[in-house]
Design a protein around this nucleic acid. Structure first.
Lengths: 355, 355
DNA sequence: TTGTATGCGTTATCAG
DNA sequence: CTGATAACGCATACAA
């Protein structure tokens, strides 16, 4: 099937290309009768309407925006936080009839960065910090919006727009709350910074600074800030840091196996995400350990399912993040382009004062 | 920020545009030294690499494929079936470094059809039947792959490629199984064909043919075939058809409220999807009705969570569908392009012979 | 109301 | 190894 162009139609009909083009895009620019004849002839010749790419080149706009993930796309579809964000983001984009492209650019995967270069897009948003993918997009002259504060060490500070919360302050609040409840033996649950190497490990405070830098190094800025905040908030408590697998409910369960099956069990557990916390609570139930009575559990995010689970957590406006990210991309005129949203400690039944 | 082009660099350096282009794409076509100088100069001038759209126009390929949904995108992210399919689809696409675009084209939304026209893509796949969006894409000369057999009444039969199961045969099997267990009072749970108008309604067999045609009319071919299959398989049983909201667990729960809270409760319930069945089972639990003892429940799909729930269901290879859909798009040479995958009745604890 | 010239940014072809 | 030309398909600006 050989491609029919406006030129072909114009030639056959003995009119100019412009007349054909106008027949499709500017009905008022030619007589109704001619227009009808052009469209008829076009259909007869197998013309299928203006070519999308050519039109994009000509107009300089694609009306498509990319969402970039640091993880594989399968994670994007299965993580509840990511799903909520995507839902809100896509609602705005759909309403404005803009296209959505999905891009997976794992940290330090130089080859995957090329995808940012090759994507026909007008802007890019991401559930991440100011990743290399973002920086690359800006080099291309594209607007970027990221949803976690922080930039790689050495990167120019505060480039690009963002919709974030103050992760450090929020985590500080969580830590202080647990300290106030009297807990002095606490475990902190963190996803791994290196998804490739699955390793459930436990670390003592001495190793902490190296560990924390690691997260900033690979671009997990939210985790980076949250760890520091919790630790600072906990003050003098004895904290062990449990590094588990990827951010998932399953990882939380595994961490539970490590933390719960021993004599000197912590009295409180703080997780850097609700999915980890919920997974941990799963493993509590399996062992007859009751969250809120036998152990206090705090999460981070306030997912839709967290309320039903009675999980005490830091609420962040997930959907708001997605909605605003989309609006910032769609509306370059908007003046507030660096937005810190409020967070809130939501106390539920999973936490109680130490006995 | 004004756009720098290869032309600009060429002019400034006094070389030809081709040399600049080659410096980026064909390092072997110019001396290492010249190449280095070109790249240096390009960087200095703020050139950010070849323009994606121009390249696409020139090459005639976008290396991007669209996934089309009949629902809003938020549904795509929250329905377990859709998530499993998308995951498998995206795994293949990621491996081949192809882009993924998300398109929402609700049935009968003529305006949304334009999105198919305006998308810069090389092909399109969908968790749907041979929808208008698919037909439109083919008119553009794009390959299409859909994952449910069936085409709108009046459409040319069997256009485009597909990866499907035999929904009618599968449903027939489910119906016969329930009949064999001795159930004669059965409710069939179906999602609504008109998501806009939320209405939990119950229908008697007399109205059935009108109802069923409705589903084919709006392009819900899988539901269409499944209803007919179940009814045919059930034979002489007394069947009431419960039409609930969108395909979701919540809808299943609502249907449960209707079906369970009355004297002449059915002894078996067949749902056209696992999410509906699982929701129905939720409402059973809420009422102290035990699936598999007080009422038999059969679903359709075999989602990951269905095994744990003990749900008897028809298994279809969801991930396989996604994987193959992607491979068909990526590999136009592949010969088998119309694939019917096997299904299987998986009997678990939610079904028992009638007392 | 219709037509002409031109450029969007890139790259294949083929000649030097 | 390097360069001139043409073409991808369309739409803006302007002229007729």
């Amino acid at each position: 099937m050989v491609k029919v162009t406006q030129q072909d139609i114009a030639t056959v009909m003995g009119v100019s290309v412009m007349t054909v083009s106008n027949a499709f895009n500017h009905p008022d620019q030619l007589s109704a009768d001619l227009r009808r004849r052009v469209l008829e002839r076009a259909a007869k010749m197998g013309y299928t309407g203006p070519d999308a790419v050519a039109r994009q080149l000509r107009s300089g706009r694609t009306n498509t925006f990319a969402v970039v993930f640091e993880e594989r796309l399968s994670y994007a579809f299965s993580d509840p936080f990511s799903v909520a964000w995507l839902t809100a983001f896509s609602e705005v984009m759909e309403r404005r009839r803009a296209g959505i492209m999905l891009l997976s650019v794992p940290a330090r995967d130089a080859e995957a960065l090329a995808a940012v270069q090759d994507a026909a897009i007008d802007g890019i948003a991401g559930l991440c910090g100011d990743q290399p993918a973002m920086a690359r997009a800006r080099e291309r002259g594209l607007p970027t919006v990221y949803c976690t504060m922080g930039q790689p060490v050495g990167a120019a500070p505060l480039a690009g727009d963002y919709v974030a919360i103050d992760d450090y302050a929020a985590a500080l609040e969580a830590g202080r709350y647990i300290a106030r409840l009297g807990h002095t033996r606490v475990s902190l649950l963190i996803e791994t910074a290196h998804p490739g190497q699955p390793a459930l490990t436990e670390h003592q405070p001495a190793e902490l600074s190296r560990l924390v830098d690691d997260y900033a190094g690979v671009g997990y800025f939210d985790t980076f800030h949250r760890i520091r905040g919790v630790i600072d908030g906990l003050g003098d408590a004895t904290v062990s840091v449990v590094v588990t697998g990827v951010n998932s409910r399953a990882s939380g369960r595994e961490a539970g196996a490590l933390v719960l099956d021993r004599l000197n069990r912590p009295t409180a557990v703080v997780a850097v995400s609700d999915v980890l916390a919920l997974g941990f609570m799963d493993s509590c139930r399996q062992r007859g350990v009751q969250p809120g009575r036998d152990v206090s559990v705090v999460g981070f995010d306030d997912l839709p399912e967290s309320a039903a689970a009675g999980l005490t957590t830091i609420r962040q406006p997930i959907r708001e993040k997605g909605r605003l990210a989309a609006e910032l991309l769609l509306d370059p005129e908007r003046s507030e382009r660096r937005i810190i949203l409020p967070h809130e400690l939501v106390v539920r039944s999973s936490t109680t004062p130490v006995a």
